[in-house]
Design a protein around this nucleic acid. Structure first.
Length: 504
DNA sequence: ATAGGGTTAG
């Protein structure tokens, strides 16, 4: 663009910054922002709240809390008006970065002033309280929401239901019903659950195993060819021999190998090469009742699967599919996740194939599951290949992805790769979170690298990342490991002494 | 064009 003499305008920058933030390339986003500021210096139009918001969100999503706060101050001093969206980003970011008290305080302040709080603000607090197991407080907030005339929507309800499931208190759902009045949504959700459970328990189907719903064709080793994201016909072309031509074909001036592939395809209606989806959550508010079923199925699938009720989850999937609704990738991801956790690798592979067959786009969570699965079957080393492939397909690496791969590599004892990946992660501008540190401490402790384990504990504290209950469990293990090492060393020394005594 | 649920660690 620049070469041809077109100066990027604020919409160009807005689009680029948005893209970088969503791909977790926050450092690039900041660079673009600064370039935009510089170009704009004599012609200050700094009322662009949306761009500031996108960057603020990006900084918080990669865990750069102090930079985010500094940026927010800059936003204020630049005279850019913060919207309710800005504050919602900030509140959620504070919670997600381990500053729950600060997030809550900010919310309360805004509430006192009246303006700038909306249904989303409430939903953010409700969701974060539920995640922390503080469901009773979350339900109180729902009551307050209703009182102030805000709509309690499906996202808010789902957060609470999942929180209730985690603490095992489904009975509290009744309390929720009392507060959410004048709304058919919650009664529908609960009735949906009752109906579903009734049909799942119908006597004729009892005891039937529904896991064969996803028969696996071919061998598990084919997983690597799937990650090529090619349909079986094309697969042959891209094998070994043709790879060199792939190299030749590579156009140094090409902006996007992905676009090239689309244009090279003979049949434009075949969109099987479009396999990576960056979109995740979509707005629920305005989708209305139409998306109700798929959202509910996804919620209850997660709940069943968390309880390990695999066969029931598959039955639910079957009933749901027979309604003629197309499952979205999240539905498949939930099922796959459960299969993989239980070690049913063949069934998980079957799902992967079904996703491929239906041309349902794979998202970052799907790739995450593949890496989890590879770790389970002792092929964590292939995980890095999968990452490379995904990046080539226009995917991005989020923190969950890094955490999963760190765990898989660590479990395989590949400590060099663990440390390399951790460096890569921090260099790419993503700050480690509590899961990252817990994982690093744990995997190093498990292979007896006590010093390294403590190094990461110190790093964690220095970074201002508060340990949680999982950290406690891991540290207990680490202490035992230290104790055992001392014993081993002591006995070794004793043997040496005995040895020198025997052969003076 | 920006914000909230359903993926990751003991």
């Amino acid at each position: 663009m620049k070469v041809y003499g077109h100066e990027p305008d604020r919409f160009t920058y807005r689009t680029l910054i948005h893209g970088c933030v969503k791909s977790y390339l926050v450092d690039d986003a900041i660079r673009l922002f600064q370039e935009m500021e510089y170009n704009n210096n004599n012609n200050i139009v700094k009322d662009d709240t949306v761009v500031y918001n996108a960057l603020l969100d990006g900084l918080l999503k990669v865990g750069k809390l102090t930079e985010a706060c500094r940026f927010f101050e800059k936003m204020v001093s630049d005279g850019v008006r913060a919207s309710s969206c800005s504050f919602n980003i900030l509140i959620d970011g504070l919670f997600k970065n381990g500053r729950a008290a600060a997030g809550f305080a900010l919310f309360c302040d805004l509430k006192k002033n009246g303006r700038l709080v909306d249904a989303i603000s409430f939903s953010i607090i409700v969701s974060n309280l539920s995640r922390e197991g503080r469901v009773a407080e979350a339900i109180d907030l729902v009551k307050e929401m209703e009182g102030r005339g805000f709509v309690v929507d499906l996202v808010t309800i789902t957060s609470i239901l999942i929180g209730l499931h985690k603490i095992g208190r489904w009975d509290m759902a009744e309390r929720l019903v009392k507060h959410v009045r004048d709304n058919a949504l919650l009664p529908n959700v609960l009735r949906w659950k009752v109906d579903m459970e009734a049909s799942l328990q119908s006597p004729r189907d009892k005891g039937k195993d529904y896991t064969p719903l996803f028969p696996s064709v071919g061998s598990l080793g084919d997983i690597m060819s799937w990650t090529n994201l090619l349909s079986p016909g094309e697969e042959e072309e891209d094998r070994e021999g043709h790879n060199s031509s792939d190299g030749e074909r590579k156009d140094e001036w090409s902006l996007s190998p992905y676009l090239d592939r689309l244009t090279n395809k003979s049949d434009p209606s075949d969109d099987s090469s479009w396999m990576f989806s960056a979109s995740r959550g979509k707005r629920v508010q305005d989708k209305g009742i139409k998306s109700f079923d798929v959202d509910m199925v996804n919620t209850y699938l997660s709940i069943f699967l968390a309880k390990g009720k695999l066969s029931r989850a598959c039955k639910l999937f079957e009933i749901f599919s027979s309604f003629g609704t197309d499952p979205v990738s999240y539905t498949y991801n939930s099922l796959m996740s459960a299969f993989i956790k239980k070690g049913y690798m063949k069934e998980a592979w079957g799902i992967l194939q079904e996703i491929g067959d239906k041309h349902c786009p794979a998202d970052v969570a799907t790739y995450n599951l593949i890496i989890q699965g590879l770790g389970k079957i002792g092929k964590a080393d292939l995980g890095t290949n999968v990452l490379d492939r995904m990046l080539k397909k226009g995917g991005y690496l989020d923190i969950v992805m890094y955490n999963t791969l760190l765990h898989a590599l660590g479990k395989a004892g590949m400590m060099d790769e663990v440390n390399t990946l951790f460096d890569k992660m921090t260099r790419s501008g993503i700050n480690p979170d509590v899961v990252t540190y817990n994982t690093l401490i744990e995997v190093h402790a498990k292979v007896g690298h006590v010093k390294e384990a403590y190094k990461f504990l110190r790093k964690m504290l220095a970074a201002g990342c508060s340990p949680n209950h999982v950290t406690d469990t891991i540290l207990d293990f680490l202490e035992k490991e230290v104790e055992q090492m001392r014993l081993r060393q002591a006995s070794m020394r004793r043997e040496e002494e005995l040895d020198t005594n025997r052969h003076p």
